[in-house]
Design a protein around this nucleic acid. Structure first.
Length: 494
RNA sequence: GGUCCCAUCGUCUAACGGUUAGGACACCAGGUUUUCAUCCUGGCAAUAGGAGUUCGAUUCUCCUUGGGAUCACCA
């Protein structure tokens, strides 16, 4: 980026941070796979960091032993890598503020908690779960909001680590700025004595993320809308800990295909790796997810990774949720596939060839690939589009009778046309141009429309639902194969 | 229910308070003397409702309606 674009960010307390000090993080909990909602949070944080030439950090928030899913931290990491969302510091690569696994940072949280205890701003929660539930039920019966601080124990016992440690809040109204949502505000009634450390010794997200963000010098806290209502409580903690507010940016949710609900795992949100397995390109996913709630103000729809880094801005992120439209995703994937050069595309389709192509040499496969590149919407389309190049298709004359154009002619007419085609092509040089000339001449001699003749030839040599431009298809198939297939098609209908 | 957030075509979105409200996906109709899932052209289609401010409101304010988030020893 050119130096002229470097600017500084102002923090709430008036301090300035320079752009290259920008540090953003993605802080998922290892409770399952990474879905598109999570990807977007990660992506936007990554874009902010990359644009500023700052750092992007991966921190795993594994403070809930009960909900943790075995192997999901690794899954998260491989998902980010597959998408090309690379991080500068993280659990597997370390960094100046290691470890990046919260479960390994328990000693980090202790002094901060102690500081609060010492200043009388944290206390042990002596109640049982049942007692708290009773308070809650009572509040509900009286139709008022339940607040723990209404039940603060008068003489809490010394905290010995076996009870939850609660924050002694100082209720007050807040107003703050959010890079996406704008100016926000809240009243004192939403501030409560939230739990800082659970009775199992692990900190809650509410406490741990604030400590870690401060320790790790995170400048931008970018996260989903679900945390918005907790924000005032966090602000209260920042103040008590004497920490400057970072820059906040709240992302609206991605909504499911139908309905308006937040797209979550329970609503059928897919593992982002599944999209890759289904033949979507990483750059498609990045582009599509970014464009879900962000645009650069121009009419550009398709962006490369570098363009996204250059053009992204939090200020242009939409405030309302956006629906995940797979149709649009499919279209966009086609756009990205077409923009790839052949060698690059060849490398990426390695796992998508049909079985029949396994032993085929590279040169041949590239020849076929070049022909079908325009037709691919996902890499997984490759087998149906190319199988007949590598193996003899089985004639299926119902494809002829079911064809809209070919329904007009009889089987005998069709066979006559194929015979004529065969003899015409036998004397062709069989490069794409000669074939085209031969076919054009054939149109004249047979008096058929291209829609009829060419549809028929296409089916007789491929028996596939779709195929590329006819003359080039025949050229790639080669003269011998083409003639043999025409013969076979005729024989099948004897 | 309390609190907070949001509101332009079916969907994703653009529009210093002044535009015939623009683009894209999808859909429909043509075209590319070649089918088809590429490509090109055209078409359909939106400011949730009501007040107010203003010469003028998609844009600012309020109300209504609708949607969402959150009210855990989950994050």
């Amino acid at each position: 980026m050119c130096a002229g674009r470097i600017r500084n960010f102002a923090l709430e307390d008036g301090k300035m941070i320079s752009m290259t000090d920008v540090r953003t993080r993605f802080a998922p909990s290892p409770t399952g796979f990474l879905h598109v909602g999570g990807v977007r949070t990660a992506l936007f944080a990554w874009l902010v960091a990359r644009q500023a030439k700052g750092q992007f950090i991966l921190r795993i928030e594994d403070t809930d032993q009960a909900r943790e899913v075995e192997g999901s931290a690794d899954h998260l990491i491989s998902s980010l890598k597959a998408l090309g969302i690379n991080y500068d510091e993280g659990p597997d690569i370390g960094g100046p503020y290691a470890p990046y696994l919260q479960s390994q940072r328990l000693d980090t949280y202790k002094p901060w908690a102690q500081k609060l205890i010492d200043s009388g701003r944290a206390y042990a929660d002596p109640y049982t779960a049942e007692e708290i539930q009773a308070f809650r039920d009572q509040a509900k019966a009286e139709k008022r909001a339940f607040l723990y601080r209404d039940h603060r124990p008068e003489n809490p016992p010394a905290w010995d680590g076996t009870m939850p440690l609660r924050f002694k809040s100082e209720p007050k109204p807040y107003q703050w700025h959010d890079e996406v949502m704008g100016d926000l505000h809240s009243g004192p009634e939403v501030i409560d004595d939230i739990i800082l450390i659970k009775s199992d010794g692990y900190p809650t997200y509410n406490f741990a993320h604030i400590v870690d963000d401060a320790e790790m010098k995170i400048t931008h806290v970018i996260r989903g809308q679900e945390f918005l209502s907790s924000q005032p409580n966090y602000l209260n903690i920042y103040e008590t800990l004497d920490l400057a507010f970072p820059i906040f940016a709240t992302m609206p949710h991605i909504l499911g295909e139908s309905g308006n609900k937040k797209l979550g795992k329970r609503d059928g949100a897919k593992d982002v790796l599944d999209y890759l397995r289904d033949g979507y390109l990483p750059e498609t996913m990045i582009n599509f997810i970014a464009s879900l709630g962000w645009n650069d103000g121009t009419e550009q729809e398709v962006f490369t990774r570098d363009e996204l880094i250059e053009k992204f801005s939090l200020a242009r992120v939409q405030r309302s949720g956006a629906r995940f439209d797979e149709q649009r995703l499919l279209w966009m994937n086609g756009q990205h596939i077409r923009s790839l050069n052949l060698d690059d595309l060849y490398d990426r389709v390695a796992d998508f060839w049909p079985e029949s192509a396994k032993q085929v040499r590279e040169e041949r496969k590239k020849q076929v690939l070049a022909l079908v590149q325009d037709r691919l919407k996902t890499l997984a389309d490759l087998p149906t589009l190319t199988d007949y190049f590598f193996t003899e298709p089985t004639p299926n004359w119902s494809m002829v009778s079911d064809n809209k154009q070919l329904a007009k002619i009889s089987t005998d007419e069709a066979k006559d046309l194929l015979r004529a085609t065969k003899s015409a092509l036998e004397s062709s040089d069989f490069d794409a141009d000669s074939i085209q000339n031969t076919l054009n001449a054939l149109l004249e001699t047979t008096g058929q429309k291209p829609g009829v003749l060419f549809s028929l030839i296409r089916l007789a040599v491929s028996w596939a639902p779709f195929s590329p431009v006819l003359n080039e298809t025949l050229a790639v198939l080669g003269k011998d194969t083409t003639i043999a297939r025409l013969t076979q098609a005729l024989a099948d209908q004897e």
